[in-house]
Design a protein around this nucleic acid. Structure first.
Length: 582
RNA sequence: CGGGGUGUAGCGCAGCUUGGUAGCGCACCCGCUUUGGGAGCGGGGGGCCGCAGGUUCAAAUCCUGUCACCCCGACCA
């Protein structure tokens, strides 16, 4: 098709909008792709909608390719199904709730697990019907506490969500694998720089779960990756490699020393080094014991837990919560210490914990044969050379110490470096949570019911547009990957001469005949304005019909590289078709 | 929810300290000139100065209240 700029519903802005911070937000607004209408709510203008539809189509094609079938639910849903799964309350304030004129409760769907489950339950009842995978591409609503970064994190957004229904765990694994492969194809087709990391499944419930993170400085998620291998992981999922165990026999005996006024690790290291023990100690030689208490859901009492880790590391709260999930966890209060005099704050050692029945877990680096400077369970005293496996035996390990850049990669190759990412896809094996809630069974070959097991898989379609912008821009504007660009060719008529416009029109018509989508800048604006707009809008190929036309040549510019070449008008169409079709 | 900031034309901003006819740039409209890198000159249209109350002869400006929005963090996926 041919779109004329003279009539295209588009107004570009010369200045960045004041409320925009990240590149995608600034550029999508400036280039006239989206306009804000509410916090976290954006309208799509013609150019933006074309890109959104292109992304959507790629997602759709890859879903169809694995046999998933598209359906569509309302966004406006009754409360009841969400009460059955408890999500009416569990989802909390993030759920948009509203009432109809009869005062009945409704919600704007944040995701559609309930509806898909009910849909399948309503239609299918035999094992012969399974497996089946359904999906939809539809707007979702979440009342985010703080929408931000334009369409990167809105309250209404376009999402592809699919759900697999299988009779067996093996079937679920296969469905999961199929989605994983499909997502790889989608994100590869989009030309994205992304990683796949193991994830915790969060509020959705379920087990196996991976996130696809697009690499971007402006991302909200921190992850780590190896400097040498392809390893990447959420910080919560990093497994610290344990060093080999050492012999305990050759270690010096544990000796208690007076270490007054050493409430911090730094002060302890200072004092110990002044004891003149013939060695120099660092924070990494100390064993810090952190006391927390945990409580399982539904349980009444808190249970104490001691965590021993090298003194140069802090406990990472997110890793702690992930490690203890589903139990909740908090630090001990002053009252707890007062009620438990055997816990000497600042001087807690493994011995008192173990002697008083407090569960004691240590960092994986604390292996048999390692010697530590740690609390002696008396005010003002620490013990040096307390050896793991000789002087104390922990109840197990817990991997909750902070992960730092420079730590060895869990796969043994290279060291970890920190990076930021934006979640663009999330796949996980839900299991039977929703099938249980709605009693979704298939009648088996033996006439006995089989509980269905589900997988759930999401792609943030509108977010992908922002992510693509985030990864494809320069100081002049957007630079779309070819297969999502709003047009194949941006034809600039550079000059007001009637013959130039006629030449441009003719070329546009010929390109159109070849099946290319062309945006033709037929406006009366000066060439400078048109060039600047073309670069801001970001169509990958710019065709300039200008002063060269008198000599029978036009200019083709590559938006990304800036390369330009003059070619004869007669071969321009053929040339462009090759460029566009690759 | 904690911290910081901002509300003045479609967009970006000044004016507020020290009260007195609401201004600049971009965009938009008209005319002439200009046309390969965001043109020039001239003319023009567009405002409940977030909202409410108060002080005052007079409020964008001072006072009180309120609402909204943005950014950082917490939370969330």
């Amino acid at each position: 098709m041919i779109t004329r700029m003279s009539s295209l519903f588009l107004r570009t802005l010369r200045e960045d909008p004041a409320d925009a911070e990240v590149p995608s937000h600034k550029l999508l607004v400036r280039a006239g792709y989206v306009r804000r209408v509410a916090p976290g709510g954006y309208s799509w203008l013609p150019l933006g909608l074309r890109v959104l539809r292109n992304v959507e189509q790629i997602v759709r094609e890859e879903m169809d390719a694995i046999g998933a079938q598209e359906i569509q639910f309302p966004a406006l849903l009754p409360k009841e199904p969400y009460e059955a799964t408890n999500r009416w309350t569990e989802y909390g304030p993030n759920l948009f709730r509203l009432k109809d004129r009869k005062n009945a409760d409704f919600l704007l769907a944040p995701t559609h697990e309930e509806m898909f489950t009910l849909m399948v339950k309503g239609e299918y009842s035999s094992y012969k019907d399974y497996p089946v995978t359904l999906y939809q591409i539809q707007n979702k609503f979440r009342d985010e506490a703080r929408p931000r970064a334009g369409i990167l994190r809105g309250r209404e957004f376009l999402m592809k969500d699919s759900y697999s229904f299988d009779l067996t765990d093996e079937g679920l694994s296969e469905s999961y694998r199929a989605h994983r492969d499909a997502y790889i194809k989608i994100f590869d087709r989009l030309g994205l720089d992304y990683v796949i990391v193991a994830a915790t499944s969060g509020a959705m419930g379920g087990s196996a779960s991976e996130e696809f993170l697009a690499v971007a400085e402006t991302g909200e998620d921190t992850f780590v990756r190896s400097s040498e291998s392809g390893f990447a992981a959420n910080v919560e999922a990093v497994v610290t490699p344990a060093p080999p165990a050492q012999s305990v026999e050759d270690k010096p005996a544990a000796v208690v020393h007076d270490t007054p006024d050493t409430p911090t690790i730094a002060s302890l290291v200072d004092v110990v080094n002044k004891l003149d023990l013939g060695r120099t100690f660092t924070a990494a030689d100390t064993l810090k014991n952190v006391l927390v208490k945990t409580r399982l859901p539904g349980a009444k009492d808190w249970e104490f837990l001691g965590i021993g880790l090298p003194g140069d590391r802090e406990v990472d709260e997110k890793r702690l919560e992930a490690a203890l999930e589903p139990a909740e966890v908090v630090l001990l209060t002053e009252t707890d210490f007062r009620n438990n005099p055997h816990l000497v704050k600042g001087y807690i050692g493994p011995k008192a914990l173990l002697a008083n029945g407090v569960k004691y877990l240590v960092d994986p680096r604390v292996v048999t044969g390692t010697a530590w400077v740690t609390g002696a369970d008396q005010d003002g005293k620490h013990v040096v050379d307390l050896v793991c496996g000789r002087d104390f035996t922990p109840d197990g390990t817990i991997d909750v110490a902070e992960v730092r850049a420079g730590d060895p990669s869990p796969d043994g190759k290279g060291v970890l470096e920190a990076a930021r990412g934006i979640e663009i896809g999330h796949i996980f094996q839900l299991g039977r949570k929703y099938a249980d809630a709605f009693k979704l069974d298939a009648l088996g070959a033996d006439s006995k019911p089989v509980r269905i097991t589900m997988g759930s898989y999401g792609v943030g379609v509108s977010r992908l547009v922002a992510v693509l912008a985030e990864q494809n821009f320069d100081e002049r504007g957007l630079v779309w990957p070819r297969n999502v660009a709003p047009y194949d060719v941006h034809l600039v008529v550079a000059g007001k001469d009637e013959t130039l416009l006629a030449g441009g029109e003719k070329l546009a018509a010929e390109l159109h005949e070849q099946g290319l989508n062309v945006v033709l800048d037929d406006r009366k604006a000066s060439p400078g304005v048109k060039f600047a707009d073309a670069e801001l809008v970001g169509v990958p190929t710019i065709l300039v019909v200008g002063r060269g036309l008198a000599n029978g040549v036009v200019e083709i510019k590559d938006r990304r590289t800036g390369d330009r070449e003059e070619i004869p008008v007669e071969t321009a169409v053929e040339h462009l078709v090759k460029v566009v079709r690759g």
